[in-house]
């Protein structure tokens, strides 16, 4: 398994991270070691019961949409955490 710099570039882009050329080289080497290790599971042949589900497999847990809290109760607490705000809005740069 050899990871290419192009793969690292693509993954960094997906992760919204910038890497220096030196960091890319380091991560590429580490990736080979880590992926080489985790790939060992590909040798395990399936022997578990077919269709069995993990105990931690998630299921949707829904509740009735009732008893809402008072409107605006948490607005100030949460907006006060935003690095940029304008009135009751979180401010971001224009996208289009």
């Amino acid at each position: 398994m050899t990871t290419t710099i192009e793969t690292i570039d693509k993954l960094a882009e997906l992760s919204r991270i910038s890497l220096t050329e030196e960091e890319k080289e380091t991560i590429r080497g580490e990736f080979d070691a880590i992926l080489g290790y985790v790939a060992s599971i590909s040798k395990i042949s399936k022997s578990g019961e077919e269709g069995s589900r993990s105990i931690v497999a998630t299921i949707n847990v829904l509740r009735d949409d009732t008893n809402p809290h008072e409107s605006g109760l948490h607005t100030e607490t949460l907006l006060s955490l935003a690095p940029r705000r304008e009135g009751n809005y979180v401010k971001v740069k224009k996208i289009l």
Binding site: R16, I17, I27, E30, F31
Partner: peptide
């Protein structure tokens, strides 16, 4: 904004694992 915030905010191990997860 995203790139600068996440690149400066996350340390080396976080960046390594973010990439592994994406992979």
């Amino acid at each position: 904004d995203y790139l600068r915030t996440r690149t400066e905010g996350f340390g080396k191990e976080a960046r390594r694992r973010l990439l592994l997860g994406a992979y």
